[in-house]
C-alpha cells in the first residue's frame, strides 16, 4: 500500500524526539477523553459490533504522531504514538487534524470529505463504517468536551484551531 493525496509530511531532523515527548505529554488527556466518552455514550459500542477489538489508526497528517484506538469496552485504548512506532492497524483514517475532529463532532460530513479526497481510509472498510456510524450517533461535541476539561485556556485553543482550519479550507488569511 502506498500513499494518497493526504500524505503525512516527511519527518524533519529531531522530529522523532519531539513526537515521543508529545505522545508522553498527551497520554493522560487521551486516556481521560476515551474513558469519559465511553461512560457518556455507552451505545456506541453496540454499533461497533465485532470491531470493538479492531485496531484503528487515526492519522492527523500535519501532526508528528498518530492516534491508536482500540474501542474495546473491556480494555479501551486511545494513545498517541510516533508514526514509526504505530502498530499494525485493521483500519486507518487519515486527514488533517481539525477535519478529523470536525468529523467526530458531525460538523463535517465524512462522505463529502471522502469525495473531495480530504479524507483517506484504508484497511477494513466495514470497521471504518461502523466507527463512523458509532461516533455519528453521539450527541454533543467531543472537541468542546475535551476543551472544557482545560477550562478557558482549552476553549481558547479550540477556537483558535477552528479559525485556522476554516481559514485554510476557505483560503482566507488567518485572523
Amino acid at each position: 500500500m502506498s500513499l494518497s493525496t493526504v500524505t503525512p509530511a516527511r519527518m524533519r531532523p529531531g522530529e522523532g524526539a519531539v513526537a515521543r515527548l508529545a505522545c508522553l505529554a498527551l497520554q493522560p488527556v487521551l486516556s481521560r477523553i476515551v474513558r469519559r466518552t465511553a461512560a457518556r455514550h455507552p451505545s456506541l459500542f453496540a454499533r461497533l459490533g465485532p470491531h470493538q477489538t479492531t485496531d484503528f489508526l487515526i492519522d492527523p497528517v500535519e501532526l508528528p504522531f498518530t492516534l491508536h484506538l482500540r474501542p474495546d469496552p473491556a480494555a479501551l485504548i486511545l494513545r498517541a504514538v510516533p508514526r514509526d512506532a504505530a502498530p499494525h492497524a485493521g483500519a486507518t483514517i487519515r486527514g488533517r487534524f481539525l477535519l478529523l475532529l470536525e468529523l467526530v463532532d458531525a460538523e463535517e460530513d465524512g462522505d463529502a470529505a471522502f469525495f473531495s479526497r480530504d479524507l483517506d481510509v484504508s484497511g477494513d472498510t466495514e470497521a471504518v463504517v461502523r466507527l463512523r456510524n458509532a461516533l455519528d450517533d453521539m450527541d454533543g461535541s467531543l472537541a468542546e468536551e475535551t476543551a472544557a476539561m482545560f477550562g478557558p485556556p482549552g476553549r481558547a485553543i479550540l477556537a483558535r484551531l477552528r479559525r485556522a482550519y476554516s481559514s485554510t479550507t476557505t483560503g482566507q488569511e488567518i485572523a
Binding site: 502506498s2 483517506d120 484504508s122 472498510t125
Partner: peptide, 13 residues
Amino acid sequence: PASDVEYARHADG
C-alpha cells in the same frame, strides 16, 4: 457491502 469494499493506494497518489 462495506465488508467487500477496499481502497488501494498507488505510488502515483
